[in-house]
Design a protein around this nucleic acid. Structure first.
Lengths: 119, 119
DNA sequence: GTCGTACTCAACCGGTTGGTTGAGCACGGA
DNA sequence: TCCGTGCTCAACCAACCGGTTGAGTACGAC
């Protein structure tokens, strides 16, 4: 099971509907009803999606009257950014090291598909 | 279904075993056998994990003799970073803007949801 | 050829997920 | 006090996921 925090966050964002919700929540807090409006699924399904986001720490709930507005939490993004940045940098460094190796070789590299061109 | 690229990437990284594989692949390419070594699961299961990573575009395969080394691709990290950074920044900006709003708002009713839009 | 190594494909299994419907709770307003 | 609105809980279902085992393929070595 995806017990750890990072797994829950990644899993939560693996669903396009939930990513769309997150995108809209960056603009303003919203109720479950408001969140549900654009989608062709039941309110209960939306409620479940919100719960997944909340369990991942991506959003928090409050209560004002009958409404329970959903609020996006920015902090969890930092967690992901930290993980991503760490390995992205490592991967790129390794890639750069490969350039060194290739540069020291006599032949050239006529395959643009594999590498892309990283200046 | 999670057909789009971003969903596949997030889903692939939602598994701690696969994240660990990615972490180790930042150090060096590895074969399926090498990748499988630390884990207490079958080789076939590891092979499946590698396939998920490959389908997400996180790794590529090649063939040298019987070996099919797995190579980490850095480009997909850029895709995630772009998504993340976009919404992280938006969320933080909104947080900052909240101060402004609270300072300037007297009173307001911006959500007439009960009255009009219930299809 | 035959063998060993390094995988992959296929079928299966239990648990999780995304969706449904129906019932029920919490709260404010008439 | 009852009603309507907003939301959640519970049960169910089909599909998917991570794992297994067993068989099969690709390739180099002998």
């Amino acid at each position: 099971m995806a017990a750890d925090a990072l797994s829950r966050v990644f899993a939560a964002l693996a669903d396009p509907t939930r990513r769309d919700m997150v995108a809209r929540l960056t603009l303003a807090d919203a109720t479950v009803n408001e969140l549900a409006a654009p989608y062709d699924i039941s309110l209960q399904a939306v409620s479940k999606h919100v719960r997944v986001l909340a369990d991942a720490g991506l959003v928090t709930r409050s209560r004002s009257a009958q409404r329970r507005p959903v609020h996006l939490e920015a902090e969890v993004f930092d967690l992901m950014t930290a993980w991503l940045e760490r390995y992205r940098r490592a991967a790129e460094e390794r890639y750069r090291r490969l350039d060194d190796v290739l540069a020291s070789l006599p032949d050239d590299d006529p395959t643009p598909s594999a590498g892309g061109n990283r200046p």
